[in-house]
Every structure is written in C-alpha cells, then in structure tokens.
C-alpha cells in the first residue's frame, strides 16, 4: 500500500506547482509552496517504510522477539525538511507583509516593477 503514499506525494507536488503557476494571490502562491513541501516530506518519510516494521525506539518491555524497525533515517530527514519549510514560510510571509504595505496589493500580476 506504500504506492498510495508515493502517488499522493507526487500528486501533492504537482498540485503545489499548479497553485504556484496559476493562482494570482501571493498567499495562495505561498500555499502552493507549502503543498510542494508537504508532498516532498510525504515522499521522504514513505521511503523509509518497511511493511511490518515498528517505530525505531528501544522501549523497555515493548520489544518482542522477531520485531524489526522501519528505517529511522528518512524520519530524521523529514524533520529537517519540515523545519526548513516552516522557516521558508515565515520568511515569505514577512516579505508579503512588506509587499502589501508597499504595493497595496497581493495580486501577483501587479507586482512587476522589475521586468524586461
């Protein structure tokens, strides 16, 4: 069933790209970036999945013979990636706040003083 995760992650990435390419509102573009991030995170964390594996923690009394772990590395990578995504979002929000104050609009088609 891990195929569903993979497919969903690529679908989320495509959806995020669609949002970024088509939506004119800067906040919606930011949401598109977020969707791309979530899709990527889902992909990374799914890569480490083993059917039948348990959480990679040596909890006393919880480990029974024959148990095995899922891959812990992608989980750590996802953690990193989530923090990065959150920081990116904060930064873009800061930019948008200032742009709204300066240009008086959130419409991306009007924010084009640099062109040509």
């Amino acid at each position: 069933m891990i195929l569903v995760n993979y497919a969903a992650s690529f679908f989320l990435i495509a959806l995020g790209l669609y949002c970024m390419a088509v939506k004119k509102n800067l906040i919606k573009i930011l949401i598109g970036m977020g969707l791309c991030d979530y899709g990527t995170n889902l992909l990374v964390v799914s890569v480490g999945f083993n059917p039948g594996g348990t959480a990679p923690i040596f909890t006393a009394g919880e480990i029974h013979p024959g148990m095995f772990f899922v891959d812990p590395v992608p989980q750590a990578l996802t953690l990193t990636s989530i923090v990065i995504g959150a920081c990116t979002t904060a930064m873009v929000l800061g930019l948008i706040i200032r742009i709204k104050a300066k240009y008086g609009t959130l419409d991306s088609t009007e924010i084009r003083r640099l062109r040509g």
């Binding site: 573009i29 791309c36 200032r98 742009i99 640099l114």
Partner: peptide
Amino acid sequence: ALEGALKYMVVGSIGSTSVLV
C-alpha cells in the same frame, strides 16, 4: 527589492523541492 526577493524565493523553491525529491 522586496519583489526581487519574493521572486527569487518562490521560483527558487521549485529548485529546492526538486533537489529533495
């Protein structure tokens, strides 16, 4: 300045996503 930075961030995020994928 703000506009250039925003474009850099938003379009650059395609590159970051690609690298991670």
